[in-house]
Design a protein around this nucleic acid. Structure first.
Lengths: 239, 239
DNA sequence: GATGCGCCTTGATGCAGATCATATTTGGGG
DNA sequence: CCCCAAATATGATCTGCATCAAGGCGCATC
């Protein structure tokens, strides 16, 4: 499980200070959280939480990317979320977790034991307020993803996925190209996220490459050369 | 839009008193809410909120069933949620709504103007706490639905949908049969919910009927005659 | 610089579910 | 009671993606 202690970061220097579940807290409240928190570090590929396990802590992602997945009894799996820095893991008020959480890259979590955290929710309104906000935002993006899973074609799914990556980490210049971007998932993981097979993902990435929409520098790095064409391929409104 | 005033219900007699966003509030808090709330009533088929509209109020469903949907620019649509009594509509802190909300049956909402409600979230911790809980629960079921949309076969989707209806409104007797249940959606709406076409839904319902799993009394009412076979057809764990 | 192992690409084939087409049922209004 | 439109059922055909099957490429290990 590779759980290790990292150098302690002061909350005020924390990279997710202004977006995580603690973001509304004032200085006094932060001091309290500072005393309660612990860090956990995972290597790429490590499981973080396994379905059915006791849920002993809740956490915010500080660094790295984790995946949230679920599987059917015969082994089919579906990724139901990507956990990026500032995202929240766990369900206060519930003893068990119903998903598999896996580190996709090296991951650092800022953790709180579940019981004391539940007490915080009762006593520190800023926590509950921010948690509600985070959960409602997550709900909106989960619903967008449902449209993708239920109604989009393979090509549209892949274009949407790439567009999401660009929006999260990239800048589009005026001629519609981007700088080099990291692809944080393997073809297999992408397929799993999009409700496809890895072959289909590979085929469509290849065809978007040959159409001049994407350019791959290596298999985990690419750039978009025609963002308009990419967007047109998503099937979404021209927003 | 058919917005009308109903007879005012006292909060303490409200059917969703113990599950809605107000469920943690004490008597004093309830008195405040009582003064702020208004009711809105919609007929089956009426739009409640339209995508892109100004979001002037938030609400809890008191009676009836509403659907939450989203559409792609070419007209494909996907239902992303069913709103049942005690479910919450709206996104405090956001000016516009990004979904279409439509009354599937006659619906009564308990509404609060958005601005004053946002103030309540700041000042009344019980509201924010309960809202966070509701949103996290919704998030869990949205994620389950993503597995269904991404990985299940048509037959599994339909079996899962029926099973959900049974769990929400029915009792399964020892021989695996249920009493008569209402089907709150048309074939077309079911298809829309499951990411299928109405023809596929119709075909699979017919075959489950001929296999002796379901029995239809009329097209909006049915009973399950073999719950074990139904569950086996969902693809879910034997839980 | 050979060997092996993930990861990826590309090709061939089959099938579940979409699409197109045509009844059939049914419930509400005159 | 009959008529009509909407909802449903069912059949025929098409197609996008899964599935099955071979390589190919890059990278670590010895």
């Amino acid at each position: 499980m590779n759980v290790a202690l990292t150098t302690r970061i002061k909350c005020r220097d924390c990279p997710i200070r202004h977006r995580a579940v603690c973001s509304r807290c004032d200085d006094d409240e932060m001091a309290l959280l500072e005393a309660m928190k612990t860090y956990r570090v995972y290597r790429a590929g490590d499981p973080i939480l396994w379905r059915g396990e006791k849920l002993t802590f809740v956490a915010s992602v500080v660094h790295g990317v984790a995946t949230l997945g679920k599987s059917l009894e015969d082994g089919r799996t579906q990724m139901v979320g990507l956990l990026l820095p500032s995202d929240f893991i766990g369900r206060p008020g519930r003893r068990h977790i119903d998903f598999d959480v896996v580190a996709a890259t090296d991951v650092t979590l800022c953790c709180f034991d579940r019981k004391p955290f539940e007490l915080l929710i009762e006593t520190m309104p800023h926590i509950a307020q921010r948690l509600a906000e985070i959960a409602l935002d997550e709900l909106d993006s989960a619903r967008d993803w449902m449209v993708l899973l239920g109604r989009k074609t393979a090509r549209e799914k892949i274009a949407s996925f790439i567009e999401m990556l660009v929006r999260r980490q990239g800048i589009v210049s005026l001629d519609g190209s981007t700088p080099d971007l990291a692809l944080p998932l393997t073809r297999d993981e992408i397929a799993n996220y999009l409700g496809l097979t890895l072959e289909t993902v590979s085929r469509h990435l290849s065809s978007m490459k040959s159409e001049g929409i994407l350019r791959f520098t290596d298999r985990r790095h690419f750039e978009v050369s025609d963002f308009d064409a990419l967007h047109a391929a998503t099937g979404d409104d021209t927003a």
